[in-house]
Amino acid sequence: MTDGAACAVTDLLSEARSGDRAAFAGLVRRHQRAVYSLALRMLWDQHKAEDLAQDVFMQLYRKLAHMQSDAHVASWLRKVTTHLAIDRLRQEPRYELVPLEADPGVPAEPAGGDPLLQRRLRALLAQLPPPARAVLLLRYQEDLDPVEIASTLDMPVNTVKSHLKRSLSSLREQLGEGFESAAAPEGGPIT
């Protein structure tokens, strides 16, 4: 982010704090993709994901006075979204198999690679237990390292690492042969 862009974002936050509704709408637009995507891939339901994302932004609106920077807003949003999603999943457990056709988590823009494989990956991710799912989403969607994930989910770093390791090997097992991880070879440490 350039200095000018960083300054504009800080202005957005301070204007939103002083009650400027347009500035708050700007903050929402800035973070809506991350929050909605986390909610969607945690809950696997577009309506529930939108409800949750709206609740998260309503909480942000009430807590604006405590926000110090845009980075603080982003990490606060990730934390509240994942915790709320895990809570809601605990209230209504979903143990049924997720059908491949019912993929609500399609990215905004198509990327390279195999779309069928990506669909299958999202479906397999949706079948992981909620904490493991949150760990994988924060790692591969939000690009956080294990220390940041641990702080977001309030869990020990070693637990995060073991979730990552177990989930990746479970995914590899279910996808079949031919899947290797460049960053974390089998049995190697996940940093």
Partner: peptide, 22 residues
């Protein structure tokens, strides 16, 4: 061999919220 982590990153790129969310 297929790089699972890269595939995961591609599969988990942010999804756009429904129209009119903000």
């Amino acid at each position: 061999t297929i790089d699972l982590e890269k595939q995961l990153r591609d599969a988990l790129r942010p999804a756009a919220p429904p129209e009119g969310f903000a």
